Amino acid sequence: MAVHLPSQKSSSRRAPMADINVTPLVDVMLVLLIIFMVTAPLLTAGVPVNLPDSRARPLDQDKQPTEISLDAMGRIFIAKEEVPEQQLPQRLEAIAARAASGEQPPQVYLRADKALDYGRVMRVMGELNRAGLNRVALVTVGED
Rank of each mutant, 00 (worst) to 15 (best):
S101D: 12
D60E: 15
P105H: 06
D27P: 01
K63L: 10
A2V: 08
R130L: 13
G119K: 06
G46H: 06
G126M: 03
P16D: 00
L42R: 08
L25V: 10
E103M: 06
M17K: 14
K63S: 14
M37D: 07
A100D: 04
R120Q: 15
L92N: 06
G126N: 12
P16V: 10
A72Q: 13
R91Q: 15
K114G: 10
K80D: 06
T44W: 00
A99C: 02
Q61A: 04
L70Y: 01
R120W: 08
R75D: 15
I76L: 12
L133F: 12
V124W: 07
N134Q: 13
L43D: 09
L25E: 02
Q90P: 01
D53F: 12
A112W: 14
D19P: 01
E67D: 10
K80G: 01
E127D: 14
S101A: 13
A15T: 11
T23N: 05
E82N: 03
R130H: 15
S101H: 08
A56Y: 06
A96L: 00
I34Q: 03
P6G: 08
D62F: 09
E143I: 00
A79L: 01
D71Q: 00
G119T: 12
L138K: 07
M37E: 14
D19C: 01
M122R: 14
I95Q: 00
H4A: 04
Q104K: 14
G74I: 04
A72L: 00
A2L: 07
L88H: 09
E85P: 00
L59Q: 09
V141P: 02
D27W: 04
Q64N: 06
P106D: 10
L116E: 04
T66C: 02
P16Y: 01
R14V: 15
A94N: 09
M122A: 09
A40Y: 13
R55A: 11
R57T: 13
P48R: 01
R13M: 09
V49Y: 06
T140R: 12
K9G: 13
R13W: 09
L116R: 06
L92V: 01
N129W: 06
L92G: 07
Q64H: 00
L43G: 07
N129A: 15
V141S: 14
V28M: 08
Q87E: 15
P48S: 10
E82W: 05
Q107N: 00
L30G: 08
I68S: 03
T44F: 09
G46M: 04
P41L: 12
R55L: 06
G142N: 00
D113T: 03
V108P: 05
V108K: 07
S54A: 13
L5H: 15
D60S: 04
I68F: 07
S54K: 03
T44D: 14
M125R: 15
L33I: 03
R57V: 10
L92W: 13
S69I: 05
V47A: 10
I35L: 15
P84I: 08
L59D: 08
L33V: 10
E127Q: 15
V38T: 09
V3D: 14
G102I: 02
Y118K: 11
I95E: 14
L88V: 15
S7R: 11
L138E: 07
Q8Y: 08
P65R: 03
V136R: 07
K9C: 01
E143L: 11
G142P: 13
A15E: 13
A18S: 13
G46I: 09
V139T: 09
L88C: 05
G142K: 12
